[in-house]
């Protein structure tokens, strides 16, 4: 019964994983893996001396950092806000609205942003109509990082709220009552009860995000790379795609991809070990 799934995972996950050997080859599609010459770490040598590669690494890490600061707290804030709404019907309605964009494709999200704040979008249009200079926020390299963060927030902040809402509902209400009886005001209850209650979830999600520091989403960036330019919009995944598939330098592209995969794996394992050290459960248990 498990066979079809195992076969598919084998063919489309494990075989390509082994196919990463081409990262150590001067791979040519005409002669295939068996015919291509092994060049040891030659591709990696080229990779590490290539400024464009380091630019992509820098962009990726910067975007991760900015998202940690600006994106990460938003779902927590939303969850706290929504949790304070007393009307169940209103709560359900707002949840329904804010979860929705999670189910939109990136193509759709970028299209919508373009229509709102792009060069021919609503913002530019109303600025022009009122005699101001139109702005195109979709093609500016200097604000690109804020743009992608805003897009991520629009798409996924509501969805990210679910897990915090679930965690909030598990906090024992008697704790609040006791604290209130002891004279703790709203702010102190938030600090001493709510936030400690959310801590395991926050730590878990932070770790997951840090382990995924090299992944910022391929589709969002490939869609906007040509409009903004590679200096700001090239991330590791798009670099692999361009060098490997569009330039046709398969071995080199695979080397960049393998670098990302291996460093990413190490980051997940380290982050998880760290979680155990600080006494949290982490992504998987120790057993």
């Amino acid at each position: 019964m498990v066979l079809p799934v195992i076969v598919l995972l084998g063919v489309f996950h494990y075989v390509p994983t082994l196919g990463n050997v081409i990262a150590f080859q001067d791979y040519s599609p005409y002669v295939g893996i068996r015919g291509s010459e092994f060049v040891g770490f030659g591709n990696f040598g080229r990779l590490f001396s290539e400024p464009a590669f380091w630019q992509a690494v820098t962009n990726t890490l910067t975007i991760t950092a900015v998202q940690l600061v600006f994106f990460f707290p938003v779902p927590i804030g939303l969850a706290l806000l929504l949790n304070s709404v007393l009307s169940v019907r209103l709560r359900t309605l707002i949840q329904g609205v804010v979860y929705l964009p999670h189910f939109f494709s990136w193509v759709l999200v970028v299209s919508l942003f373009q229509q709102m704040i792009g060069g021919a979008g609503l913002l530019a249009q109303s600025l022009r109509a009122n005699g101001y200079e139109a702005v195109d926020l979709m093609t500016r390299p200097d604000t690109f990082i804020l743009l992608v963060t805003a897009q991520s927030i629009w798409k996924d902040a509501g969805w990210g709220m679910i897990v915090f809402l679930a965690a909030l509902s598990t906090i024992n209400p008697a704790l609040y009552e006791a604290a209130a009886a002891d004279g703790a005001n709203r702010r102190r209850r938030l600090w001493h009860i709510t936030l400690p209650g959310l801590r395991p979830v926050i730590v878990l999600l932070l770790i997951l995000r840090l382990g995924d520091a090299l992944t910022v989403g391929f589709e969002q960036f490939i869609l906007q790379r040509s409009a903004v330019g590679g200096d700001a919009a090239e991330v590791l995944d798009t670099y692999v795609y361009y060098q490997g598939l569009l330039v046709g330098d398969f071995g080199y592209g695979a080397a960049a991809g393998l670098f990302k995969g291996v460093v990413g794996l190490v980051l997940v394992l380290v982050a998880n070990r760290f979680a155990h050290l600080v006494g949290e459960q982490g992504v998987y248990s120790r057993s």
Binding site: V11, F12, P16, T17, N20, G244, F250, A254, G261, L265
Partner: peptide
């Protein structure tokens, strides 16, 4: 075998070649 796929992706280039 199923759970291990969570930990790493195979990479764009090798997937394309397969």
């Amino acid at each position: 075998v199923v759970l291990l796929t969570f930990l790493f992706g195979p990479g764009i280039i090798p997937s394309y070649l397969v």
